[in-house]
Structure formats: C-alpha cells, structure tokens
C-alpha cells in the first residue's frame, strides 16, 4: 500500500518538475505546488521516507568484526542520542580530535565501534539503480530525528572556528578551466544559470536556511535520496573541479560554512527536490 502511494506521488512530482521546464509550465497551478509541499512532510507520499526506514534498520543492525550495532555511536549529544544531533553537525569530536560531518562520523563509528571495513560502504556512498547506499539511508534516518529543530552548529572549539573560516575561504577560491568558485554561482540574489535558480549563500539568511533545512532530500530527477556530500560533489562537477574525495575536509569545511550561514533555519527532512 505504502509503496504504491509513494510511487504515484513520485510520478506526480516528476510530471510537475518536467512541466516547469517544458512547454506545459503554465499548467503547473499553484494548487499543484501546494500539493507538492504537503507531500514533502507526508511520510506516506515522500519516497525519501523509505530511506528513513532502511536507515533505522541499519542503525540497529549488528555488523563488523565486533558484531555490534551503531546504537552506541556518539553523534555529539551523547552515545546513541539522535534527537537534534544532525542540527548541530558538523562539530568537533574529542575522541577523533577532528571536526566531522554526519557522514565522516558514521564512518568513524563503523570503523571504531563495529570494526567494519568501510571500503564497501564507501564504494556505495551514492546509490544507483539496484545499488542501495547505507550512508544515504543512515543520514536520512538520523537527520529526520532533527525535524522541527533549528540549525545551530557549535563554534566554541578552535577547530570548529577553523573549519568555518577555511570553508569561507574555499567558498571564494576560484579554479578549474572556467575559474569558477562556489561564489560564482551562489553569491548574488535572484540569479540563475540557464533556468535554474541559484541560492545566495554569501551571507546568513533565508536562502541558506531554506536550503540547509531541506537536506538530505529525495531528488526526483535522480530517483534517489541524496545528502550534502552528493550535492557538493555535483557542484564541484559543475565548477569543473576534480572529483572531491568522499567524506573529506573540504566538503566538511564548506558544509560548516553553509550551516553557519543557515543558523536558525528549521529542518524538515528528507525533503523532495527536483
């Protein structure tokens, strides 16, 4: 039952999204847009919630050489405490002596708590047809536990301050054959590239809040739940930069900077996006 409802909802969104870029755009009535908004927060019609369910199962599954679950993993608010944890990430973890985003932290817990060889998990970091991603599912589950809460990353530790400062520098760092930086596409109001609107992240406020409050998201165009790691991987592709290493410091620095710009934004995830 749930599956069919989700499938037809996804189909409706596909039509809606295709429409807004094709000739039938005028038909995309406000009513349809309203319906789309409702679907986002309705677990019965947002396919992202299938990932949430899978993530919940993975969180509790005993794996690795130590054959234990992730349930004692500390995401910043105490061992196993998930409520509100995502709203405060990335953050500094003393046991790793490092600032980590959720994905880096989960890999750390898999390695250190479960004794899991994460090679296969990393190989499946982005799902594809017939290939599920543990990371996407876990992030969907954990991030969902911060719904209704406000983005508020800790910035008291010097390494947290460093992350944000480096993230800001990286946001403006130009390179690649087109001399692009994040700022080329995301530092002005109301701009678009071809027909795609570009949120301005150069200052704190609504565009950053609404964006960061909506990731992870179910991307209709890709038929998959995606995390910020994937979004930034895709933006680096458009930036004509090399492939960024998954779960590495540049991504975490940029995420920290974006989270700072998004402070006080409310989480409602997984959302649904084009």
């Amino acid at each position: 039952m749930r599956k069919t409802v989700i499938r037809s909802a996804a189909a409706a969104i596909l039509v809606l999204c295709a429409g807004s870029f094709g000739s039938h755009a005028q038909d995309a009535s406000e009513k349809e847009i309203e319906r789309y908004r409702e679907m986002i927060s309705d677990p019965m019609s947002n396919p992202g919630y299938l990932a949430v369910d899978r993530g919940e199962a993975l969180w509790g599954e005993a794996r690795g050489t130590k054959n234990v679950s992730l349930e004692t993993c500390n995401l910043g608010l105490g061992a196993g405490k998930l409520e509100g944890a995502f709203a405060q990430l990335p953050r500094y973890f003393a046991d790793a002596d490092k600032v980590m985003d959720l994905e880096q932290r989960l890999l750390w817990c898999m390695q250190n708590i479960q004794g899991l060889d994460t090679k296969d998990v990393i190989a499946r970091r982005f799902s594809g047809p017939g290939r599920a991603s543990d990371m996407e599912d876990l992030v969907a589950y954990i991030a969902n536990k911060s719904n209704g809460m406000k983005i508020d990353i800790p910035l008291s530790h010097p390494k947290e301050q460093e992350m944000v400062a480096v993230g800001e520098a990286l946001f403006y760092r130009r390179g690649g054959v087109n001399d692009f930086s994040c700022a080329t596409c995301h530092a002005d109001e109301g701009k678009r590239i071809r027909l795609q609107g570009l949120p301005n992240f150069s200052k704190p406020g609504k565009p950053a809040q609404e964006t960061m409050g909506g990731w992870p998201t179910y991307r209709v165009s890709q038929g998959a739940l995606r995390t910020m790691q994937h979004r930034l991987w895709d933006c680096f592709r458009q930036q004509r930069w090399p492939v960024p290493e998954y779960g590495s410091d540049v991504i975490t620095a940029l995420t920290s900077f974006l989270q700072k710009q998004a402070a006080a934004g409310e989480l409602n995830v997984p959302s649904i996006k084009r």
Binding site: E162, V166, A169, L170, R173, W241, P242, P244, E245, S248, D249, V250, I251, A253
Partner: peptide, 11 residues
C-alpha cells in the same frame, strides 16, 4: 592551512 584541506580532498 587551506592548501592542506585542498590536499586532503583533491590530493
């Protein structure tokens, strides 16, 4: 410092 970050991600 920024270069060190760059290296960890694009190295």
């Amino acid at each position: 410092l920024v270069d060190a970050y760059m290296k960890s991600t694009f190295g």
